[in-house]
């Protein structure tokens, strides 16, 4: 199977399933996070050490960010949003390792994550309000807006996938081009930019996912909230 810098290489196939470097890198990330979590949580103490303090700090920061957007559903959304942020940070930064491509430079991976966000919005919305009340919000404030709602659902999901893919892929491509043109160590500044961009993109993706999910959760609630209370 042919591959270019824009499409990841297929490492092996299991019948119709082609396992690409993106999948293998993702497995590596998952394995690393699992091992790190297992090692960390095996030594949890009430008086935390530096590593546990850092882990609790990460968890606390994620929980606080979720609580700021969806105060009543912080515990419910934490596993999904937290995992999204952690995975995206690690996946985006993994491209800095020599010989490793970031999974998020693959449109299939970012599309998968975007689809998961899309599905999560509906899953949490229906779970919170019920099917009919949730679907009814597509008809508000007027049924005429239904097509726009549907287009919005699709475009924002596509935007999520393409934004992350475009940024990470372009960074890696820029670094590769500079390496080819200018030589060894020349792309170091662009790699520094890669770190910042990786963190920013992970934050944007996670925060947008959170906002979409919180919007789905609170759509029916907002419809029933009086105008005065909303202004407050």
């Amino acid at each position: 199977m042919e591959h270019s810098e824009l499409s990841p290489a297929v490492l092996f196939s299991l019948g119709p399933v082609h396992v690409t470097s993106t999948i293998v890198t993702s497995w590596g990330i998952i394995l690393g996070l699992w091992l790190a979590s297992s090692l960390l949580c095996r030594r949890l103490r009430l008086t935390p050490g530096p590593v546990q303090t850092a882990a609790e700090g990460v968890l606390g920061a994620v929980e606080e960010a979720i609580r700021a957007v969806a105060p009543d559903h912080a515990r419910l959304l934490l596993p999904f949003i937290g995992t999204l942020w952690i995975f995206l940070v690690v996946a985006n930064l993994s491209g800095l390792l020599p010989g490793v491509h970031s999974p998020t430079r693959d449109l299939s991976a970012t599309a998968a994550l975007a689809i998961l966000v899309f599905l999560s919005v509906h899953w949490f919305g229906i779970r919170s309000q019920g099917l009919k009340p949730y679907l009814r919000h597509y008809l508000t404030p007027s049924p005429l807006l239904l097509p726009f709602h549907l287009i919005s659902e699709v475009t924002r999901t596509v935007a999520l996938a393409v934004r992350l893919f475009g940024n990470i892929m372009s960074l890696e491509m820029a670094a590769l081009l500079i390496l080819l043109v200018a030589g060894f160590l020349a792309p170091v500044p662009i790699l520094m930019l890669h770190i910042i961009e990786a963190l920013v993109q992970a934050y944007i993706f996670g925060m947008l996912a959170l906002i979409y999910i919180a919007g789905g959760l609170q759509s029916q609630q907002q419809r029933h909230t009086p105008q005065g209370e909303r202004d407050e």
Partner: peptide, 17 residues
């Protein structure tokens, strides 16, 4: 878009969650 990667990535992420 690789459907294999797409589906496996979904599974990977759910497992990670």
């Amino acid at each position: 878009l690789s459907w294999s990667t797409f589906l496996l990535e979904i599974v990977n992420f759910l497992v990670l969650v």
